[in-house]
């Protein structure tokens, strides 16, 4: 006879899960419900508000600033992620060569920017991207005779944001691709190579299908993070404004400005819900597309 399990007091599992349940109820569920209620209110700071019905949403739809913010955010996310994915996969492939020496040093160097929060990257970028005096233009000028007065921080804020985000996140994504490449069947690759498949064919027919689930997951995570970009442009512009013609305005920055500079938590919540719906639809789309694939 096998040893009998000693009965566990019924309250024990609830004791262990209690911190999560309490924290979830108070700091996630309650604010979540409150955020729905707030979308129907106009507030002046946290203490005073009044009912406005659906006016917040209809105001947002005709709010030119919101549309600029949405356009900027989408442009940023699509271009930034669109460059990051092939770039980080390419770096991971370079790192995955079996004969490579100094792999951990390369990995350490390329991953290191991921440790630096976007606040600090934003503060650095506000200096690095300055025209004439900034490090980037000086280096580009001496290497490629690039225009030293190229105005990154005014009219070309979007490419500057994208460059800074590539610096921050490419190495981070590379780590995921590198882990995924460990799952590629080396024997299969060798067999294909003996059968005369070139590197491109091997990549397309063996490597790519193997890493597809991870690639999909990383793209999703990266899109979700990029659509919530705030600190980077906010600090690149030294918190003064949102750039000429609001070129640096993002959805979360606009949410922050309306909620915490102007004090209308209702309007901010309505913006929050539009963002949430966008992000949740993205997750649902991803689930649909990746159904049946184990990640």
């Amino acid at each position: 006879m096998s040893r009998r399990r000693r009965a566990v007091a019924p309250w024990v599992p609830y004791f262990f899960i209690a911190p999560f349940l309490l924290s979830f109820a108070l700091f996630t569920l309650y604010p979540l419900i409150q955020s729905v209620i707030l979308t129907t209110r106009q507030s002046f700071g946290p203490g005073y508000d009044h009912y406005v019905g659906l006016a917040n949403f209809s105001n947002i739809l005709s709010d030119a600033k919101f549309w600029v913010a949405l356009k900027n955010t989408l442009t940023f996310a699509i271009i930034s992620v669109g460059i990051q994915m092939p770039l980080s996969l390419g770096l991971a492939l370079l790192m995955n060569q079996p004969w490579l020496r100094g792999r951990s040093l390369f990995r350490l160097a390329i991953f290191s920017p991921a440790l630096v929060g976007s606040v600090f990257v934003g503060i650095m970028s506000a200096i690095v991207f300055q025209k004439r005096t900034g490090m980037l233009n000086q280096v580009l000028h001496s290497l490629f005779n690039f225009d030293p007065d190229f105005p990154w921080l005014s009219t070309h804020l979007m490419p500057a944001m994208i460059i800074a985000s590539l610096w921050m996140w490419t190495g981070f994504n590379m780590i995921y691709f590198l882990a995924a490449l460990q799952n590629v069947d080396r024997e299969l690759v060798e067999a294909a190579s003996i059968d005369g498949a070139g590197p491109v064919q091997r990549f397309l027919h063996i490597t790519l299908p193997t890493i597809r689930p991870v690639a999909g997951f990383v793209t999703l995570i990266c899109m979700i993070a990029s659509l919530q970009i705030f600190e980077l442009p906010y600090l690149m512009l030294a918190r003064l404004n949102s750039g000429p013609e609001d070129r640096g305005l993002t959805v979360v920055m606009y949410l922050y400005q309306t909620g915490f500079n102007i004090g209308d938590l209702g309007y901010a919540s309505a913006i929050g819900w539009i963002l949430a719906i966008l992000l949740i639809s993205l997750s649902i789309l991803y689930r649909r597309l990746s159904r049946g694939e184990a990640v």
Binding site: F27, Y30, P31, F230, L255, L265, W273, L275, A276, L279
Partner: peptide, 12 residues
């Protein structure tokens, strides 16, 4: 998403 809870969290 975390930004959704910023305004109601602040109020709380």
């Amino acid at each position: 998403p975390a930004p959704l809870l910023l305004a109601p969290g602040y109020q709380l």
